[in-house]
Amino acid sequence: MARIELVCPAGSLPALKTAVDHGADCVYLGFKDATNARNFTGLNFDDKAMRDGIAYAHARGAKVLLALNTYPQSDNWTSWTQAVDKAAERGIDAVILADPGLMRYAMRTHPELRLHLSVQGSATSYEAINFYHEHFGIQRAVLPRVLSLAQVENVIRNTQVELELFGFGGLCVMVEGRCALSAYATGESPNCNGACSPGKHVRWEQTDQGMETRVNGILIDRFGKDERAGYPTLCKGRFEVGGETYYAIEEPTSLNTLELLPEIARMGVAAIKIEGRQRSPAYVGQVTKVWRQAIDRVQRDADGFRPEPAWQAELAKVSEGQSQTLGAYHRPWK
């Protein structure tokens, strides 16, 4: 069985070190600007932190992937190309890109630089993945969280590009790269600004009816005394449709595919991605530790693999809304 890489999030240098120390094969990170899809205040790497992070990871045999996965526009194009140049100079192991124009720049300017197709590229079929492979030589694609496992396997059979699957963490319900909900509500989008439901537009207000959460004035949810108020991600609020108030799009929940690991390993997935660059180093450490053990176990004995209750308990502690789902990998979720 081919080795599955564990790809872990690093929103800061301490998170990167924790991930490497707990057994990540790769860490992925971004610069402190709109060139990546987690452009949040207080997060990400400046030049010095990036050099230190790369040195730390490489000294311990781990790879460093750089997310440059937003879409540059004509007036800010050079910020993205400079980021690609820096990645190549610093010895980044691969850049994760979504924009075809930027892929072409990277391929022509730094032919030795390895390219991964970001989940923000919205490639959900082998035809789309092969498009990026033929034109820009991408060597790995991160799949949007929309396919069932059978569909993932069909993609693998029809492409030579390695596939990376989301295994754990916050769940985008919408096809990544094709969601303008945040742009519609706030003017800031994952595609162009690297932000979804950005904090500067969020208001928490204690009212007579309970704690209300708003994004740019739009009421996303209201919580009673006994409820824990969650962050108002636009697609995870309670809304009224046809006279019923409920989580009309998705509950606050995390993706957890641990129980699918033998199946994922059998079909030849190249890497498992953990979501959460915006989360704490403690989260990164806990999740990396569990997934390292699980991947090592499944690669020794796929048939006998059962997720340890202790692993699931650890993961449940750090899940959004303390709840978990198999997402689209499990057809009934759809």
Binding site: Y71, P72, Q73, S74, W77, A98, D99, P100, G101, L102, R104, Y105, G121, S122, A123, T124, S125, Y126, E127, A128, N130, F131, Y132, E134, G177, R178, N191, C192
Partner: peptide, 29 residues
């Protein structure tokens, strides 16, 4: 979808739709 772009490449006169995320001149080219 880029899968459609792959199948249409080299045919004449197709239309690049709104969900292809063409945000800059390099991608448009």
């Amino acid at each position: 979808d880029m899968g459609a772009a792959r199948l249409l490449a080299e045919t004449e006169g197709w239309i690049a739709g709104p969900s292809l995320n063409i945000f800059n001149a390099h991608t448009l080219s």
